[in-house]
Design a protein around this nucleic acid. Structure first.
Lengths: 243, 243
DNA sequence: CAGTGGTCTAGACCACGCG
DNA sequence: GCGTGGTCTAGACCACTGT
């Protein structure tokens, strides 16, 4: 037996995908909807929470519930094969950047395989699309690898990235670990998402041929509009017949 | 001002991580806890929902709330470079398998790049660890590529997989798309997770050298205990200096 | 059967956005 | 100030698990 919450969510979802409710439209107030469906407000809010988690509805405190525009999904392209492409995909519109110097500690030190306290350059990127922010990246580079140019604050994003690409040793291995978690309250407010909306968290570790970690990145993408794509090519696949 | 829900969640979390509440322990009943914290039961349940989403607490209907054992995280190893490893990681303990014949339609047909109605072998894998299920995989192979052996039902999982590995053309390209979403109600009950817990959904597409899709897989992993790891090696990286 | 969580009600009060 | 969503209350009733 489907719960009332799901019944209502299904009905509203149907109205949205069939176009009877259009992107940008404001839904009736929650009290109004609750009356229409003859449920209590918490029940109706639960139904809206379902649609919110699906990315179909956006709640704005004090204004109402709105049908989300079909959001261009953010696609993170992994594998580092064509670094430029990844950046472009991550930053379809604009990116604000802030670079600071920090010191490695805890998890970060382990990620970079550096002793605690090592100096790092932190590059904090906030991707924007349209009105709102939509992606968050924290990139860490050992200070001795970050050229002075990359350290200047308020450089255009593109230049910082191409600067990073020209770092000394060519990256030889990229390891990306993907997990799902709830955003920290900081991340939720930065990305303007509900703290109940899971995010795609990508931890990237780039090493050179000697195995030295030349870059670590912590990426956070809203789970309702982000994908990650990885493509692996097996040039020569000589299968040892089950071995 | 932190909400009461978060205050309670923080307090319980602290009790758990400091070991005052140990894995396997049953929490007092929700009514009891609500009385202790002098909040209503819905509020207390919201606090538990936070901990549940973090994977610290597991609710069991009719029995109570339990501190989760530190769960061995499921690691999906992508890239297909060493297929055996992926399988092992996905199936640390046991996997139950069911194969059926279905016909391609909609999204699935597009994924396999086959016309709607094409015959497929569906291999439904349910990974178990300890008591409960923990991963769900639906693997689709065009019927003309699936050897008769793989079609027999109730073959051991290992044999089916090695059978699959020996399919005709060596896989040349693996494309994996990762997204976060809420489980369908089917998936939630199969995996025994709350329908509010986001899952890691991996869509895998394996093609041979000719570009023909030889396998498509839909994997669903509980977001609170799953990671995916991708490692890319750049054998020779001749960077064309920005070009 | 008793005890547990699952769902829901019908309100209350507060915080935010806008005229 | 008004309407909106955000949070919370103090219950009710149902479904599941054990004895």
């Amino acid at each position: 037996m489907p719960s009332r919450r799901d019944t209502i969510a299904d009905d509203l979802r149907h109205r949205i995908v069939t176009g009877r409710l259009k992107p940008g439209d404001r839904l009736p107030s929650e009290a109004h909807l609750a009356a229409q469906y003859t449920v209590s407000t918490p029940t109706l809010r639960n139904a809206l929470a379902v649609l919110q988690a699906e990315g179909l509805v956006e709640k704005v405190h004090g204004k109402g519930n709105f049908i989300r525009r079909p959001v261009r999904r953010i696609t993170y392209v992994g594998g580092g094969r064509t670094p430029d492409r990844r950046i472009v995909d991550l930053a379809p519109l604009s990116v604000s950047v802030r670079t600071t110097k920090v010191r490695a500690r805890g998890h970060l030190a382990a990620l970079l395989k550096m002793p605690t306290g090592s100096p790092l350059t932190e590059i904090l990127c906030l991707g924007h699309e349209g009105e709102g922010p939509h992606s968050l990246a924290r990139i860490y580079v050992p200070c001795d690898l970050a050229p002075a140019a990359a350290l200047r604050e308020s450089l255009p994003y593109e230049e910082i990235m191409t600067g990073l690409m020209e770092l000394r040793p060519p990256p030889a291995e990229v390891r990306e670990e993907i997990s799902v978690r709830l955003p920290t309250s900081e991340e939720a407010s930065t990305l303007r998402i509900s703290s109940a909306l899971a995010v795609l968290a990508i931890t990237r570790q780039t090493a050179d041929v000697a195995g030295r970690v030349v870059e670590a990145a912590l990426l956070v993408l809203p789970g309702d509009r982000a994908d990650a794509v990885f493509t692996a090519h097996h040039m020569i696949d000589e299968r040892p017949a089950k071995a």
